[in-house]
Simulated scan of single mutants.
Amino acid sequence: MRRFAVKLPPIAQDVVLLIARIGVGIVFVAHGWQKFQTNGLDATAQAFQGMGVPSPTISAYYAAGAELIAGTALILGVLTPIAGVLLALDMFGAFLFVHAPNGIFASDGGWELVGALGLFALVVAVVGPGRFSLDRLIIRAPARETVAA
């Protein structure tokens, strides 16, 4: 079977991973910061309670902390398997308890944004942060192998 996929060189893959990690990480950090800043975590917990989120106070603290701390870890590319899983779980909770009943479109309160963010976080947890990351510097791992087509 003939494949028509364009294969980027590993350095380009790592640059794309870096840019994507930074962009998505900024979105997570902004949402985590918003939970602390807007009206504080008590207001976030109250909002969560109104949406039917279980254990709204614990959930508010988890969501804010995960988005802020793991989002920062995603930007830096440090502890990415842990950060990615924590963020994916955060987005799964948002999907399950808040957004799924509203359909797909974010403009209707739907799940498209939390779905995209959560899936990206999960991919980075599995694939890794790429060459331009603190994980790579700390572990001094060789560049990841690309899968032959």
Rank of each mutant, 00 (worst) to 15 (best):
65 G>I: 03
77 G>D: 01
5 A>C: 04
103 G>F: 06
100 A>Y: 14
50 G>I: 01
42 D>N: 14
46 Q>V: 01
14 D>M: 07
72 T>L: 12
64 A>W: 03
140 R>M: 01
48 F>I: 01
96 L>D: 10
63 A>T: 13
15 V>F: 15
114 V>C: 10
90 D>M: 08
9 P>Y: 09
68 L>W: 12
59 S>P: 10
118 G>K: 09
79 L>M: 15
2 R>V: 01
136 R>Q: 15
88 A>W: 07
28 F>G: 09
94 A>R: 07
62 Y>L: 14
143 A>R: 15
113 L>W: 06
28 F>E: 04
32 G>H: 08
67 E>S: 08
74 L>P: 08
70 A>W: 06
140 R>G: 06
55 S>I: 10
87 L>D: 14
115 G>Y: 04
57 T>L: 05
59 S>E: 00
124 V>I: 15
148 A>S: 12
114 V>K: 06
34 Q>T: 02
148 A>T: 08
40 G>A: 12
85 V>A: 15
4 F>M: 09
59 S>Y: 06
94 A>I: 04
98 V>Q: 13
58 I>C: 00
9 P>L: 10
138 I>N: 08
4 F>T: 04
12 A>F: 06
146 T>M: 11
4 F>R: 13
37 Q>V: 11
52 G>K: 10
128 G>L: 06
118 G>V: 01
90 D>W: 02
43 A>I: 03
78 V>L: 15
109 G>P: 02
140 R>K: 11
112 E>V: 02
59 S>I: 02
149 A>S: 12
145 E>S: 04
121 A>Q: 05
74 L>F: 09
61 Y>E: 00
56 P>R: 08
41 L>K: 05
118 G>T: 02
133 S>N: 11
149 A>E: 12
2 R>G: 01
86 L>M: 15
136 R>L: 03
76 L>H: 12
64 A>E: 03
56 P>E: 00
77 G>N: 04
91 M>H: 07
3 R>F: 02
76 L>Y: 10
35 K>E: 02
122 L>P: 01
58 I>N: 00
121 A>M: 09
92 F>E: 03
55 S>P: 00
7 K>I: 05
16 V>W: 12
35 K>T: 02
130 G>C: 08
48 F>R: 02
48 F>H: 02
74 L>W: 08
3 R>C: 00
75 I>S: 14
71 G>L: 08
7 K>C: 01
62 Y>E: 00
41 L>S: 07
136 R>Y: 11
45 A>M: 06
110 G>R: 05
86 L>Q: 08
31 H>R: 02
38 T>K: 14
26 I>C: 06
9 P>I: 04
17 L>G: 15
36 F>N: 06
43 A>K: 11
65 G>A: 10
44 T>K: 05
102 N>L: 02
17 L>V: 07
5 A>V: 11
37 Q>L: 05
71 G>W: 05
126 V>D: 00
107 S>L: 04
56 P>Q: 05
107 S>P: 00
